[in-house]
């Protein structure tokens, strides 16, 4: 059909909404793909930090025990559990918590804990999530309830977090999908008369456990939700799935293709869906103190060197701008009175 035509109804097509989302397009991986990304990030970080150590003092990196990719994941996981604690304290809606958890996971698919400690990133991710889910609170109210936290601890990383998320703020959540299944089930023609709310609560707890796993980076929210529901009540999950998929095989989805996937999700939830052992994480965090990127540690030699270099570049740019402005001034029609306003530092971001 002619796409330029102004006849109204023709662009009303049925594309599954989820498939148009940034989550579907940019934030789904295979388990192997995830592992590769994390290993590559870890390799690059270790090589760069080793180099920084060596520049500072040759030979100094040889006895540093850098973190490996799995240890990084473990540390991040601890801070995923802390998001839940903070959200409970602030009484944030579930959407805020789930969104912040997704942000923290996505952040560490672009960054390493050796550069950015999850303690700070977690605070920024949560604050950003309050805003992106339309539950904003003032920064002051936020930081004043979190011990030893200044405004700058939250705001300094906001751009970095937003950039790492690729400014893609919308997250589709499994707990919403679960709610949908629960509502659907009640309107089935042969719906069981006594649906106990405890079934839903049990399933919701499985969804919450899934947040501590990689499930959302691999499976769709509906797959996670159905798996969680199936863990709570296999019979009802099957009944719901049958109502959805019988006579609707045209989209390639059948019970035979879905249930094996559910098993994978369940296995993952049961295996990884719990808080990490504190001792193990403490050990990782102890080693992190010794192997984190010195360029990010205020006061270190490498940090100062980087600052000096950045200041030099900024100075260079300012000088260039001033000289350009002066050049313009020599224009016979130019204004000479407003010489200062010609240099607009605020607009300089080339």
């Amino acid at each position: 059909m002619d796409s330029d035509s102004a006849t109204p109804a023709e662009t009303v097509r049925k594309e599954p909404l989820f498939e148009a989302s940034t989550q579907f397009r940019n934030w789904r991986f295979s388990p192997e793909g995830l592992a590769r990304i994390r290993e590559r990030l870890n390799d690059v970080a270790v090589a760069a930090i080793r180099n920084t150590f060596e520049v500072d003092q040759p030979g100094s990196s040889s006895n540093v025990a850098f973190l490996d990719a799995n240890e990084e994941v473990l540390l991040v996981k601890l801070y995923l559990t802390m998001i839940s604690q903070l959200c409970a304290m602030f009484r944030f809606p579930e959407e805020v918590e789930a969104t912040a958890v997704s942000y923290l996971k996505r952040f560490y698919l672009k960054n390493t804990v050796m550069d950015w400690h999850p303690k700070n990133v977690m605070l920024t991710a949560l604050f950003l999530a309050t805003k992106t889910t339309n539950n904003p609170i003032s920064l002051e109210a936020y930081t004043s309830h979190i011990p030893k936290t200044a405004s700058s601890d939250v705001l300094d990383l906001e751009f970095l977090v937003a950039q790492s998320l690729n400014f893609e703020f919308v997250v589709w959540h499994a707990h919403r999908a679960l709610w949908g299944i629960w509502l659907d089930l009640q309107s089935l023609p042969d719906a069981p008369a006594n649906l106990s709310p405890s079934i839903y609560d049990t399933a919701l707890n499985h969804v919450r456990a899934s947040r501590l796993t990689d499930a959302e980076l691999i499976y769709s929210p509906s797959q996670i939700a159905l798996a969680a529901f199936s863990m709570a009540t296999p019979e009802l999950a099957l009944q719901w799935a049958q109502s959805k998929f019988s006579g609707n095989e045209s989209n390639g989805l059948t019970l035979d293709t879905i249930f094996p996937v559910l098993e994978l999700v369940k296995t993952m939830i049961l295996r990884d869906g719990h808080a990490p052992k504190v001792d193990a994480v403490r050990e990782v965090d102890r080693r992190l103190k010794l192997c984190k990127n010195p360029e990010k540690v205020a006061g270190s030699k490498a940090f100062v060197a980087k600052q000096v270099e950045e200041e030099r570049k900024a100075e260079e740019k300012r000088n260039k701008k001033v000289s350009e402005a002066q050049k313009e001034q020599s224009d016979p029609f130019g204004e000479t009175i407003q010489s200062t306003s010609l240099v607009d530092y605020g607009d300089d971001d080339d």
């Binding site: 950003l128 805003k131 904003p136 920064l139 919308v170």
Partner: peptide, 20 residues
């Protein structure tokens, strides 16, 4: 003072998803 403001966040959030 509260960082990225709500109207910028809304604009980015929705336009990132909507392609029409």
């Amino acid at each position: 003072k509260d960082g990225l403001d709500m109207s910028a966040i809304r604009e980015v959030k929705y336009l990132r998803e909507l392609k029409h």
